[in-house]
Simulated scan of single mutants.
Amino acid sequence: MARFDLTDFEWSVIEPLLPTKVRGVKRVDDRRVLNGIFWRLRTGAPWADIPARYGPHTTCVNRFNRWRRAGHWQRILEAVSAAYEGDVQMIDSSSIRVHQHAANGSKKGDPVAWVARAAA
């Protein structure tokens, strides 16, 4: 078990929420795939760089997207938060480096569009 893999307690909360309809080929273990998805989200690495111990990276990205469209991630977050009695903390930040000469560059295009995008 890697440092940030799901604990047995977390898995017991999440497992009943996952889809159980099996189609076609045998499924890669859901817990393994979830750990791969969480590894990717935690590191910010490309999907293709997910370690092999988590199964094929294509399986991880496909399940992530399929479960997102089906609303499973919202249910998982709510269940884990309830299991920890609301004591879940998350931090989300983005940092984008700008070339040293681009920071003071002129903004080409319609200035109203810049304001509209900033307000959105």
Rank of each mutant, 00 (worst) to 15 (best):
A2F: 05
A2L: 06
A2S: 09
F4N: 15
D5Y: 06
D5S: 04
L6P: 02
D8W: 05
E10P: 05
W11C: 01
W11M: 01
P16T: 05
P16H: 02
L18R: 03
L18N: 08
P19T: 04
K21I: 10
V22W: 00
G24S: 04
K26G: 00
R27Q: 10
D29H: 09
D29V: 11
R31S: 03
R32Q: 15
R32S: 10
R32D: 00
V33K: 04
L34P: 06
G36I: 06
F38A: 11
F38H: 05
W39I: 02
W39H: 12
R40S: 10
R40G: 01
R42M: 02
R42N: 08
A45D: 12
P46S: 13
W47Q: 05
A48Q: 09
A48Y: 07
D49N: 08
P51W: 00
P51I: 09
P51T: 05
P51S: 07
A52G: 00
R53G: 00
Y54W: 07
Y54T: 03
G55I: 01
P56A: 08
P56H: 12
T58V: 04
C60T: 02
C60L: 07
N62K: 10
R63G: 01
R63I: 01
R66E: 14
R66M: 03
R66A: 15
R66D: 13
W67M: 11
W67R: 10
W67E: 07
R69C: 01
R69D: 12
W73A: 08
Q74I: 09
R75C: 04
L77V: 15
E78Y: 02
A79R: 12
A82T: 09
A82M: 04
A83M: 08
Y84C: 05
E85D: 12
G86R: 06
V88I: 15
Q89N: 08
M90Y: 05
I91H: 07
D92K: 10
D92Y: 13
S93W: 14
S93F: 15
S95Q: 11
S95F: 12
I96N: 10
I96H: 14
R97W: 09
R97Q: 13
V98Y: 10
V98F: 14
V98N: 02
H99I: 13
Q100I: 12
Q100C: 06
Q100R: 15
H101V: 14
H101M: 11
A102Y: 11
A102S: 14
A103V: 15
A103H: 09
A103P: 00
N104L: 14
K107L: 15
K108H: 12
G109M: 07
G109S: 11
G109P: 04
D110T: 05
D110M: 03
D110H: 08
P111T: 11
P111L: 10
V112E: 12
V112P: 00
W114G: 02
W114Y: 15
W114Q: 06
V115A: 10
A116Q: 09
R117Y: 09
A118H: 08
A118N: 05
A119D: 07
A119C: 10
A120H: 11
A120I: 01
